[in-house]
């Protein structure tokens, strides 16, 4: 009886909360037309999103080169699904991912890098930095765990320094401060500097995850490998890393999802990411400032990709069980 009452109560609360958004998004929204059509209604102006979708997603990417994007996305999604769904060895899967990234760079080559805007920029920076950060993080963790002297101190110093910085601070350093310190005549493209910042940040985060993985490998494993006469590289590659990395794949995917969302910070150092392209769209005087609609749209885009990653990561979880 009280359960029934509670259900009704919750239903009433939900209706109360969702009524407004529902009316705004569904009942009173405008799906096509122009700015003046929108002004006659109180609901969402989805006509604006439809009109500006191209601009928000691709920014200034030239219209006549769109065919290149097909190649890019084909490679992007194919490699993503291969990585998460294939049962091959992780080295193979990683190699395929790396190869696909190079391939994608070639696809986009005909277009100047400053025109890789919006979603393209987000995906490119996401994949590129994660691909470099993953092995780098593993390397840092191994050096921290098994290295000696200078190497070990260097690894600890780098990890702790980067972990003590907010990502936005690293991005500012890369975009504003680094050029001041470079010798005259030296110039590193901004996108590369930002790549550097993301790579550092993510590899330090991953290094700490891998450290946890390495510490879980029993001491007896090393004894057994040594007693068989295995040399250190073999022991590391065949015994230690498989046991340390595989159980950590799920947290690693989580770092990937966080990185994906953190690509939005590029807008702050004036890169043309999704936030900035939607700002560009909002500047159009023919349309009023439909801020909510445009942010809702990029929210959906981010949600789609994060959900996809999270879903694929869960498939991994089922398989990564190591005994």
């Amino acid at each position: 009886m009280s359960k029934l009452f509670l259900n009704f109560f919750l239903l009433a609360v939900m209706i109360f909360i969702l009524k407004g958004p529902f009316e705004w998004l569904v009942l009173n929204s405008v799906w096509s037309g122009s700015s003046s059509d929108c002004q006659m209604h109180t609901g969402a102006c989805l006509a604006f999103v439809r009109d500006k979708m191209d601009l928000i997603l691709w920014g200034t990417f030239p219209g006549d080169k769109r065919i290149l994007l097909c190649g890019y996305f084909l490679s992007f999604f194919a490699s993503l699904f291969f990585f998460f769904q294939s049962r091959r060895k992780i080295e193979v899967k990683f190699g395929v991912l790396l190869f696909s990234f190079v391939l994608e760079s070639f696809f986009l080559w005909p277009v100047s890098i400053s025109k890789w805007n919006g979603l393209l920029l987000v995906l490119y920076v996401f994949k590129g930095s994660y691909l470099v950060a993953f092995p780098l993080g593993l390397f840092l963790a191994v050096v921290r765990r098994y290295g000696k002297g200078f190497w070990r101190m260097g690894s600890i110093g780098l990890i702790e320094f980067v972990r003590g910085m907010p990502l936005i601070g690293l991005l500012f350093m890369a975009s504003v401060m680094l050029p001041l310190f470079l010798p005259v005549g030296w110039e590193i493209p901004k996108i590369i500097r930002l790549f550097g910042a993301y790579i550092l940040f993510v590899s330090a985060t991953l290094a700490e995850i891998f450290r946890g993985g390495l510490e879980q490998v029993g001491k007896g494993q090393m004894d057994a490998a040594n007693s068989l006469g295995l040399r250190w590289p073999t022991t590391l590659m065949k015994i230690i890393l498989p046991q340390a990395v595989m159980p950590m794949m799920v947290p690693c995917v989580n770092v990937g999802i966080t990185l994906f969302k953190d690509t939005a910070l590029m807008g702050i150092v004036s890169m043309m990411d999704l936030t900035m392209t939607s700002k560009m769209a909002l500047k159009d005087l023919d349309w009023g400032g439909y801020v909510t609609e445009s942010y809702l749209f990029i929210t959906l885009v981010y949600f789609f990709f994060c959900f996809l990653l999270s879903y694929l990561g869960n498939c991994l979880r089922k398989r990564a069980v190591i005994h």
Binding site: G218, Q221, D223, Q243
Partner: peptide, 15 residues
């Protein structure tokens, strides 16, 4: 490699 060893806790490679 010429000296075999067997441990109390087996130390097989679980993966």
């Amino acid at each position: 490699s010429d000296v075999g060893m067997v441990f109390q806790h087996f130390n097989l490679f679980p993966h």
